[in-house]
Amino acid sequence: MHLESAAIVVDDYDTAIAFFVGALGFELAEDSPALTTEGGRPKRWVVVRPPGARTGILLARADGERQAAAVGDQVGGRVAFFLRVDDFDAAHARMTAAGVEFTGPVRTEPYGRVAVFLDVAGNRWDLLGPA
């Protein structure tokens, strides 16, 4: 048993793909047409994931006002996504150069080095590395 994927609601598929693949270095695992939404609009099945990972993130384009209101606030402003890297300094520098917005300075916690960043939708993530 393993966790296949988790969804993040986004405004636009292609903008989200560009962020996760270009800025974070994820792989585009799948981008396929899917059945239309309840409103009849076309949608896609878009999955990104860190290189070598089994668990992916389904990028789900917001459909309707309720979903659009959740973009960037899927977990009430808390950090809910955690990206662990082996080389924290290299990942932080690469992400900063790619324009990823960090919300504060790097800090050291008992579980490792951490810096909070925002994804393309405005959700908060922890970039985590070894202590």
Rank of each mutant, 00 (worst) to 15 (best):
A29M: 11
T36D: 15
F117I: 03
I17K: 03
E65H: 06
V114A: 09
G112N: 10
F81T: 09
A53C: 01
V47D: 03
E101H: 13
V79L: 00
E27C: 10
L35K: 15
A121M: 09
F102T: 02
A29L: 13
F20L: 07
A97S: 07
V48H: 05
E30G: 12
T15N: 11
W125D: 10
D87Q: 08
M1K: 12
G39N: 12
D119W: 10
L3D: 08
F20E: 05
L24N: 00
I17G: 05
A131Q: 13
V75F: 15
F26M: 04
E109D: 14
A131H: 13
T55I: 06
G39P: 08
G25H: 04
A29W: 08
R49K: 08
P33A: 13
G122M: 11
H2R: 14
T37W: 04
E65G: 05
F26H: 07
R61C: 01
R78D: 13
S5I: 08
G56W: 04
A16D: 02
E65V: 08
T103L: 10
S5Q: 12
A18L: 04
A93C: 03
A16K: 05
A34Y: 02
Y13M: 01
T36Y: 09
R107P: 03
V106W: 04
F117K: 01
V47E: 10
T15R: 15
G39Q: 14
A53D: 06
I17E: 01
V46K: 06
A93T: 08
L3M: 13
T15G: 13
S5L: 15
F88Q: 08
Y111R: 12
A115C: 05
P50T: 05
A131E: 10
V116E: 14
V100G: 01
V106R: 12
E30Y: 09
G64T: 06
A18W: 00
A90Y: 06
G39I: 07
R49Y: 01
F19I: 02
D73G: 14
F88P: 01
R61S: 01
D89P: 08
T36P: 14
T108Y: 10
R84H: 13
G112D: 07
T15I: 11
T15H: 11
A18D: 07
G56F: 05
R107Q: 14
M1W: 09
V10E: 00
E65C: 02
E38W: 13
G77E: 07
A80G: 15
D126V: 03
L127V: 03
G129C: 08
R66W: 11
Q67P: 00
P51Y: 00
R124P: 11
A34W: 04
V106F: 09
D31S: 10
R107F: 14
M95D: 02
V116S: 07
Y111C: 08
V120I: 12
A16R: 02
L118H: 12
A80S: 14
A16T: 03
T108P: 04
F19H: 01
E30M: 15
H92T: 04
L128M: 15
P50C: 02
D119K: 04
L128T: 14
V75P: 06
G129F: 04
I57C: 10
G122C: 12
A121S: 15
F82W: 14
L59I: 05
V106P: 02
D119N: 06
V47Q: 11
V79E: 07
A60L: 15
